[in-house]
Design a binder for these strands. Structure first.
Lengths: 355, 355
DNA sequence: AGAAAAATGAGGTACGTCCCTCAAAAACAC
DNA sequence: GTGTTTTTGAGGGACGTACCTCATTTTTCT
């Protein structure tokens, strides 16, 4: 049987009240006594029964997810995943609110926070471009004692507590190796489609991609980034223009949203079957592309893992509990047709707040 | 605030005791009353506070993991992962025991169970070859009311509750595509190394591998399986013999344990640099192989996920709770040097029983 | 030494659920 | 309609922790 606070009290030769004061860092205990209690805790290997503690404390956690108001499949899936996780056991005793803010309006993000300002928030997960506004927001949140987790896009210059996402430079390198090895020995050009070069993750992917292409596949020449700005028609248009302007495109790297637009342009251009396409994120469209062979490989991060990891980290930080680094490591997944996971399609459920 | 049993009692117009009887399926309640209570539960959206319930019940779960007594890196890592998971929050209120049984001795597995027969076990995770003994064991366990989860190797003919692992045929197909695309257009032979063709997962991998090779890469000819029986020296020896006997081996598929032995044989044979090697499972050795370029790709299943998933499923079944299918889906991971996750190396900690 | 301040003890209530007992009420059999 | 069985109600103690109050002891200061 696991030791309880009573065992600690007996072992340390103090009363239960004192043990409680030490455990919950309440004032009015001599250093010497604190040490005695901690020694007893160490000796008996006491670990607080979190379930009982939360029951007694009637604590509820308030977590806020801030996502960009962009209508991509990936974001829809992410939102659904957060919603699902928020109804699961991980969000026990938690209120999870998802707020979306227009990406163009840097101040909107501050407004969102003020709206929820009536009650303090325990933790916040933010996915946003790396801008001064966001940085200030994070600083402000930290000053208020809120834990901040960055999601998908890191904010390395801001004092966030944790980053939930992948190393995008490594992701770009991974994409390059697959694309390069799949493309074969013949020289040619590679079109690169991104959502926006303002996004740090896009820049990182492109960087890693170009590094590997230059090092290991010098016969492939990567073209300037095509910025689709998460807009299907725009993406189709500029991709088509690029394919028309260059005669020897042997591969396309879709580093950001825009697979639908790219597909459209490719279909219209009537490019050869062996055009190699590597895209990011597993959505209904990239899934379809893998199945019908129009996409060769997808570099993905599991939205379910992202959502659960963010929640676990926020919770652990709120509880001042240690976290299992191994579990919180988000993998850079490589998906081809053969290892495509069966579609669970929770992406179709309606995302909303939950508990 | 979430509704409690008291709210249910008031809503249903019965006493707390009756609600309790219904909730815990105790006898002595009329059908009509049961229905009234269930209606109230549905109406108020009551969900039992599992933490409080377990606290009150003082319930401890007893889970047993049965693993083959084989000294491979993968099994060591798996054991470490189970051990880690057993100390984490997933194993709250659980006693997890890991037992290893000699693979050659089919009856040993029954003995293990008898040793733990003094107290009933809530759930059991089994990794073993698909044999009649194992099937009988699972039938016996089920008869005793124990939930049974198969691990890594499924036992589709046995009445197990769940399978934690990957689709090995799909894994073999995945390996074939990578190997085939990496190997290029030149004809050649492919050596296939397995641990034992008695293991269902090996057979499945080989099956999927050959399917894809025949369909999509007919210029590659796969050679008969080399059975290394998880023995390094034997693997090295038969691989060397194979490489000596065949003149045009362009790729090796290591479907089972034995990367070390294969590596040794390859190094001694002095095969060309562009020999394509695809192996299974991420261990210190395959990791090293990816880093130094002697392995091109690894098909892996995350031991941490396996361990945690098994524990989550066992727990959910014990609680008669639903499980999140999406989360329990073990991915067929493709790992190349570029997306190699940082080594956490919990594999070095000492695996043992825990709580 | 005496007064003030700080530290500690004793005891209680609460959280939501489980599980027990005993009495009362309702349903059923004949 | 009486007796028997079944169903229900009322109440309480327990699980391990949090947090509160008030009294008492110990320490510190002058």
């Amino acid at each position: 049987m696991r030791p309880t606070v009573n065992d600690i009290a007996r072992e340390a030769g103090v009363s239960l009240a004192t043990v409680d004061r030490v455990l919950n860092e309440r004032p009015g205990v001599r250093d010497k006594t604190i040490r005695a209690v901690n020694d007893a805790i160490a000796k008996l290997g006491y670990v607080r029964n979190v379930a009982a503690a939360n029951l007694a404390r009637q604590r509820r956690y308030r977590f806020l997810f801030i996502l960009p108001a962009v209508e991509t499949q990936f974001l829809r899936a992410l939102q659904a995943a957060i919603h699902d996780a928020a109804r699961g056991p991980l969000a026990e005793a938690s209120d999870v609110v998802i707020a979306t803010v227009p990406q163009r309006d840097p101040h909107a993000i501050v407004t969102v926070l003020d709206d929820h300002g009536d009650q303090p928030i325990d933790g916040c997960a933010i996915m946003a471009h790396e801008t001064p506004d966001v940085r200030d927001l994070i600083i402000r949140l930290k000053a208020e004692g809120t834990t901040v987790v960055t999601l998908i896009t890191d904010q390395p210059r801001a004092p966030r507590d944790h980053f939930v996402g992948i190393d995008n430079r490594a992701a770009g390198r991974t994409a390059a190796v697959l694309l390069g090895r799949f493309a074969g020995q013949k020289p040619g050009k590679v079109a690169v489609v991104v959502s926006s070069m303002l996004a740090r993750d896009m820049v990182d992917r492109r960087l890693g991609f170009d590094e590997v292409l230059a090092e290991r596949f010098p016969h492939l020449q990567s073209l300037p980034s095509l910025e689709g700005h998460d807009d299907r028609d725009l993406t189709a248009q500029i991709t088509a223009a690029c394919l028309a302007a260059h005669d020897n495109v042997v591969a396309i790297y879709v580093a950001g949203a825009g697979t639908r637009g790219v597909n459209e342009a490719v279909r219209r251009a009537g490019l050869p079957d062996h055009l190699v396409v590597v895209a990011h994120e597993l959505t209904a469209h990239t899934r379809g592309g893998l199945e019908d062979g129009s996409i060769d490989a997808v570099i993905a991060q599991d939205v379910g893992h992202l959502a659960r990891s963010a929640l676990r980290v926020l919770r652990a930080k709120a509880d001042r509990a240690p976290l299992d680094e191994g579990q919180e490591q988000i993998r850079i997944e490589i998906v081809i047709r053969e290892n495509l996971p069966p579609s669970t399609d929770s992406a179709l459920s309606t995302p909303q707040a939950a508990a």
